[in-house]
Design a protein around this nucleic acid. Structure first.
Lengths: 226, 226
DNA sequence: GCTGGATTCGGTGTATACACGTCCCGGGGA
DNA sequence: TCCCCGGGACGTGTATACACCGAATCCAGC
């Protein structure tokens, strides 16, 4: 097996952040990560710097790298970005999409539906893959690049609340509606579905975050410890 | 003088790309750059990787780093992104802005007006700084991060055509109108000015790029050499 | 017992050194 | 003349080694 290059390491790290294998606020030990990837710290650090450019981690001199941690207000802001960016992709997606692409997306939705209630990891992975694949059909490299950046940032937070089954079945219905819109070649319907899905996710996620803020927040105020 | 850290090097490189000191398509010699910054290639390469994450350069294994080069269609796409992102900042900017901020922005506009016709470098620098400062007032970190990424990408192309004096004076009037909107606490007016400024820049730039494509494009087709 | 400060240790940051890949050029052959 | 191949030089990519910094620990003093 060829030695991993920084781009591949970065891809792996992105995935780890998305799936909360590396949780928000977690400090990253470079020696350990480098050992896991089977490389020295040089290419690992280069991969980390790429993630810095994407906002996924922050590095401070002497303190190393930490996975970006978001406040509820920031997650809300990022959902605002999703609303600004993603609905606009509906039109180019519908014009570019081929039958085979639609079938592939439909297959992913079917896979999601086949998953049991306890398999929320796999479900979230498929859900993420669906969005990404859908948008990549737009052929708008730069928009997709930014959208993916935003999706990667919020994914660790969206994922925590993916086990809420109510939103899960509803989102699945929305995914089906998106596939149907593609089949009907109806960009306006697709755009509406995208917008609705984001709005719903935003509402439930922000509510949940305000009810139960991230565990780390307590450290901010030592007086709050009971 | 303390040894430069990767973040600072990255900032310097960003500026160099924006100002076309490092032109689109240009290959970057790591030894030379490292020597200029007075560091080894390690921190330089880390800075380069950060720019990769921001889309400003691309690195290919064995081939090193090259400044991102855009087709006219891509520039157009990026202006679409500006239209999606920047007008929405008008409201938060107007709610956060203080008198001192407005005065500072007004000062920058005055500086721009004081510049002679031949000082298009300085004018472009101020023009960029104005936009960035204005948006930073919005206090929306993530939106601003993405907007700055987009601005940095298109700036080398916008800059080539900044010497067109007609658009320069018109843009200056729009900048004044933005300051006036801030003074009048009129977010709708500011939003309109932002949108108009982007639309105008998009139109003139795309026209110019289609008339006279980038010099490098000829290399794509060796038959075109006369 | 508690506090303040030196000390040690783990970890980060970077210079050096070296292996490798790519490109260019020159020579030989068709 | 043109093409192809081999060697060399340049430049990139990364492992190693070391200097430095910050945090936790331990001890002395109060």
């Amino acid at each position: 097996m060829a030695r991993l290059r920084p781009d591949q390491i970065a891809a792996s790290l992105r995935r780890a952040v998305r799936e909360r294998v590396l949780a928000p606020g977690e400090a990253l030990n470079q020696d350990e990560l480098a050992r896991r990837f089977g490389v020295s710290r040089i290419p690992l650090r280069e991969a980390l710097r790429t993630l810095v450019g994407e906002g996924l981690i922050i590095m401070q001199p002497g303190l190393g790298a930490v996975v970006t941690e978001l406040q509820a207000a920031e997650v809300n802001e990022l959902y605002g970005l999703r609303l600004s960016l993603e609905p606009g992709l509906a039109l180019p997606v519908t014009t570019n999409v081929r039958r085979a692409d639609i079938d592939q997306l439909a297959g992913m939705v079917a896979e999601m539906q086949a998953l049991g209630a306890h398999q929320s990891e796999e479900w979230s992975n498929l859900n993420y893959a669906f969005k990404r694949r859908l948008y990549e059909l737009s052929d708008q490299r730069h928009v997709v690049r930014l959208v993916v950046q935003v999706l990667n940032l919020v994914e660790p937070y969206a994922r925590v609340h993916a086990h809420v089954l109510g939103s899960r079945t509803q989102l699945q219905e929305q995914r089906e509606a998106m596939v149907a819109a593609l089949r009907a070649d109806d960009p306006a319907a697709l755009e509406q579905e995208i917008r609705q899905a984001i709005l719903r996710a935003q509402a439930t996620l922000i509510d949940a975050m305000n009810e139960a803020p991230s565990p780390h927040d307590d450290h901010q105020d030592p007086l709050l410890r009971r």
